[in-house]
Design a protein around this nucleic acid. Structure first.
Length: 465
RNA sequence: GGCGGGAUAGCAAAGUGGCCAUGCAGUUGAUUGCAAAUCAAUCUACCUCGGUUCGACUCCGGGUCCCGCCUCCA
């Protein structure tokens, strides 16, 4: 029985799909004006893992992850670069896809972009005006802007647990005479001269950030769907506003279950663009493999804060080496025993709000069993267990590579294997001559290159440390 | 100020009212020419003060400290 923490109810709810056997899920993706950082990587990996597990559990999942490819930051960055905004976004969409692939993140079923969804967006804004939930700007200054009237939506604040009075009491909401209420937010933003724009009933302009997600999600998944996810920082105001827009426009419940992943931190402080304390996925990929980053992310429960430190990536590296080492040299069958006790333990862990750390513990238990069987010479039994290990790891998007290849490839450039093989052959010769000094010298030489040797059963295998 | 999350061994990180998490690191043994890998054994825990209980790291209450949201952010 799958339980998922629901931000709406603030507890773990038993997951019950709207339509039996099917899951419709939407996750807020990137605003593509820069490279993905580790925080983005966490969203990608976490929800990819959720989708993989739902599919493993037998659900037919439709996974939608959008791209925000028009907004103020994009326009600002394009101006800085003196390039067309669409050239900029195209480049970063490409980069994001490459990063996702490195992290073992499967493509979503649909990836709508804001600029490709203008009719739907404009349509929804018009509906909100028609139904009395939106109005055009109150001053000359904002001519062509359309705002959402927060006071017209009675449930406003339910997701974030905020009250309108409390929000208004906050000193940080600036006065804006274009709006009725400082909390009202923009649905359609009039274009300034030279800005990219789309025609609308209110003049040339572009959508506000929140409306595009409402429009794209309902467009792809219908008015009412199962799961909506994103980073914790989107809970307010972004997701709160999405609910207000969608429910006001359609008159239906928008989403049953809201999932929010915790932040990535550095030195106990949130990693973010505004603080400037972020690492891009690309930077980290120079030193670590995508799978190591993925393991690092999954080693913490998705709602907990995830502190970044090189040591933790090193840790992920050693842990993954252990698992791959276990599979190495075994001819692992594709079929696995679904009745293995580990399968049940794994499911229990994942059914409990995607407890990946506990699921990983199950993997290490299995690895221990496989190694013990190998030591006992029970190769067939070892392979059967290994099949379970591999299958369950695959559900987490791990251990998908060929162990031999994985262990012999580095994070960055791989220096040629021929030289390594030649040195190993020379060492073999020295060992046969019982010239231990020479054999050890060669091993030290390889060690300096980051190559570790393992002698077993009269053969020598190598891997990168 | 309002609302929310947390404090677990050297480092990370799960979890449970009474019995082993797990990974890395450490120690010892097996194995090895020596290593590595692996196996076995083992040392380090549950912020603090009260309460409930036969028994609490786990439940309840007070305290201390940390973090997040309330503004663009995954």
């Amino acid at each position: 029985m799958l339980k998922i923490h629901n931000s709406l109810t603030r507890k773990k709810d038993v997951f019950k799909p709207i339509e039996p056997g099917k899951v419709k899920m939407y996750v807020c993706g990137m605003t593509v004006y820069d490279l993905c950082h580790l925080g983005h990587a966490r969203v990608l990996v976490v929800f990819d893992t959720v989708v993989r597990y739902l599919r493993y559990s037998g659900y037919d999942v439709t996974y939608v992850r959008n791209i925000t490819d028009i907004d103020d930051k994009i326009i600002a960055r394009a101006n800085e670069n003196a390039e067309d905004f669409s050239a900029l976004t195209k480049r970063f969409v490409q980069a994001m896809h490459e990063d996702a692939a490195e992290l073992g993140v499967l493509p979503p079923d649909e990836e709508p972009a804001a600029t490709a969804s203008m009719p739907e967006i404009i349509n929804m804004v018009q509906t909100l005006i028609d139904k009395g939930f939106a109005y055009t700007a109150k001053s000359e200054d904002g001519a062509g802007d359309v705002y959402y009237d927060v006071s017209a939506f009675k449930d406003y604040g339910r997701l974030s647990g905020k009250k309108l009075e409390d929000l208004r009491a906050g000193e940080r909401v600036a006065v804006d005479e274009r709006k009725d209420d400082p909390l009202d937010f923009v649905l359609w933003k009039a274009a300034k001269p030279g800005e990219p724009s789309w025609d609308s009933p209110w003049g040339k302009g572009r959508p506000g950030w929140h409306i595009e997600c409402s429009a794209m999600s309902t467009c792809c998944l219908g008015n009412h769907f199962d799961i909506h996810g994103g980073g914790q920082d989107l809970q307010f105001p972004h997701h709160e506003n999405e609910i207000a827009q969608s429910e006001a426009a359609t008159g239906e419940t928008f989403v049953n279950l809201w999932m929010h992943n915790g932040f990535v931190r550095i030195d106990d402080e949130k990693m973010s663009k505004s603080l400037g304390n972020f690492f891009t996925v690309r930077e980290i990929l120079k030193l670590y493999k995508g799978e190591e980053i993925r393991y690092f992310v999954l080693a913490s429960q998705y709602r907990s804060p995830l502190n970044y430190a090189d040591q933790l990536l090193d840790n992920a590296r050693t842990a993954l080496s252990r698992l791959y080492n276990t599979l190495r040299g075994l001819d692992v069958p594709a079929d696995y025993d679904e009745n293995d006790p580990a399968v049940e333990k794994f499911k229990q862990a994942m059914d409990d709000d995607f407890n990946t750390p506990e699921a990983l513990a199950v993997l290490f238990d299995l690895a221990n069993q496989v190694n013990r069987l190998k030591d006992e010479g029970a190769d067939d039994a070892a392979m059967q267990k290994a099949a379970v290990l591999k299958k369950l790891a695959n559900v987490l998007g791990l251990l998908e590579a060929d162990p031999e290849h994985y262990l012999q490839s580095g994070a960055g450039d791989d220096s040629d294997a021929e030289k390594i093989e030649a040195l190993i052959a020379a060492r073999k010769q020295a060992r046969e001559n019982k010239d231990w000094a020479e054999a050890d010298r060669i091993r030290d030489e390889l060690d300096a290159l980051g190559i570790v040797l393992e002698d077993k059963d009269g053969k020598t295998v190598w891997r990168r440390s």
